[in-house]
Design a protein around this nucleic acid. Structure first.
Length: 413
DNA sequence: CTTCCACCGGAAGTACCGGTAA
DNA sequence: TTACCGGTACTTCCGGTGGAAG
């Protein structure tokens, strides 16, 4: 190796394009040094930040604290359900109350163990059980065991340590389909077979349909308490943004109108505080990079576009190869003729694309599932249409350009 | 009124993968 | 080594179905 770049620090001249390159990078660093960031504590706006004070959720905080409180006296606590739309404060309330609960319990020397598991992060029922076991200090293999064995080990762990275990399963709808799995049933019935230890369960769900899907008998038998989280109103979102902005940004870099604008956008989208904070953060980053003195509503508009683009790009990138090819077929057909192709036409085109690449096309049924998934991800819209004598089909419309799909396809290999 | 097209989408089964236990 | 585990991707099979044409 030549080591030109390292040597240049000690006085030797770098060769050729390295000079240019060095100046370019140097300029970025120098600018960063010369201008002050608009941020004071950027992490305050990140989704996993746990605030010290939670605004506009007094009812919910009190209700959840009341559910947990009996455990401090050694009594059994009731199983609970927290539900509401995304960004309505469920997770933040639950984690806050759990944190405070744990510290009080520790001070009182109570033998209470708190487990918090995010089911979406874990990804499957099996992995949720693994996380629970490990949370209780039992090492279990991350795969390979029968579920029944895992339940048995969890039972034993709860019983062996005695006292109460409070388990909170966040985003439970990610791994639990009512009727398909016995997860919640088995966990809530665990107390009947343990003698010393007691397990209490709190589940958190984003999905409103989840509650309806779970049949009423099951629900009332398993969960004695329910807390509903309503969407934040415009005023509440504004307060939250104002509070966080004061912590996150230097003084007077975020004008009132920017906060109001962010709040208004999030209020329109079912009062999602997470979305509002995300927009504010990205707007701040864009303003920072542009060297602007303030974060303006124009930066928020740019943030919306940037976030949307990013969502599309990462959704595209994570698609399996056949989904990308189906999407490319839809995008090309839409683009070429300016109208939406039918399901049959797209399948024929997709099959051709596969053969061109030496791939075996998936069959028609799988193809329909792929289209249904693309629809779910918001990359296409597929509406059912009846053409009478000429049958029924789906009209599939691409929401991305052929170029975007081709770019994603290129990175495939 | 019936027929019949061009699909739809649920159910069940198969194959495979990365892993464990004995 | 063998038998088995859960999860995922895919296939096979097949009973629907809205509405223009006849």
């Amino acid at each position: 190796m030549s080591g030109d770049l390292i040597e240049c620090e000690s006085g030797l001249l770098p060769i050729g394009s390295a000079v240019l390159c060095l100046d370019l990078v140097e300029a970025v660093f120098q600018q960063a040094l010369a201008t002050r960031s608009l941020f004071k504590r950027r992490e305050v706006l990140l989704p996993d930040y746990e605030p010290d004070c939670i605004l506009h959720r007094d009812e919910e905080l009190r209700a959840f604290a009341q559910i947990l409180a009996p455990a401090l006296r050694g009594d059994r606590i009731l199983n609970a359900m927290l539900f509401g739309l995304p960004g309505t404060g469920k997770t933040v309330v639950a984690r806050y109350v759990l944190r405070r609960f744990a510290s009080v319990a520790r001070a009182q020397d109570r033998s209470v163990r708190v487990l918090y598991v995010n089911c979406r992060v874990e990804g499957s029922e099996y992995k949720v059980l693994v996380a629970m076991c490990r949370g209780l200090g039992v090492d279990v293999p991350s795969t390979g065991l029968a579920k029944a064995e895992l339940y048995a080990r969890l039972f034993r762990a709860v019983d062996a340590r005695g006292g109460a275990v409070i388990a909170v399963l966040d985003e439970v709808d990610a791994v639990y389909r009512p009727g398909e799995s016995q997860l919640l049933y088995l966990l809530t019935r665990m107390n009947e077979s343990t003698r010393r230890g007691k397990l209490s369960l709190t589940i958190i769900s984003n999905s409103v349909t989840f509650k309806e899907l779970m049949d009423a008998r099951e629900r009332s038998a398993l969960f004695e308490e329910e807390i509903l989280f309503h969407p934040y109103t415009f005023e509440q979102l504004y307060d939250i943004l104002k509070h966080r902005a004061e912590l996150a940004f230097r003084e007077s870099v975020v004008p009132e109108e920017t906060l109001r604008y962010c709040a208004a956008i999030a209020a329109k989208e079912h009062g999602d505080a997470r979305r509002a904070l995300h927009l504010l953060r990205v707007a701040g980053e864009l303003a920072d990079r542009a060297g602007a003195p303030q974060v303006t509503p124009q930066h928020v508009d740019a943030a919306i576009a940037a976030v949307d683009r990013q969502v599309v790009r990462s959704a595209l990138a994570s698609l399996p190869i056949h989904a990308k090819l189906v999407l490319l077929a839809v995008a090309r057909l839409c683009y070429q003729r300016g109208s939406d192709p039918t399901s049959g036409e797209v399948f024929a085109y997709y099959a051709r694309l596969c053969r061109e690449r030496g791939l075996r096309p998936r069959n028609e049924r799988t193809f329909r599932s792929i289209v249904a998934n693309l629809d779910l991800y918001g990359l296409v819209t597929a509406r059912l249409e009846s053409r009478g004598r000429y049958g029924r089909t789906r009209r599939i419309h691409a929401l991305v350009t052929p170029e975007e799909v081709e770019a994603a396809l290129c990175s495939e290999r």
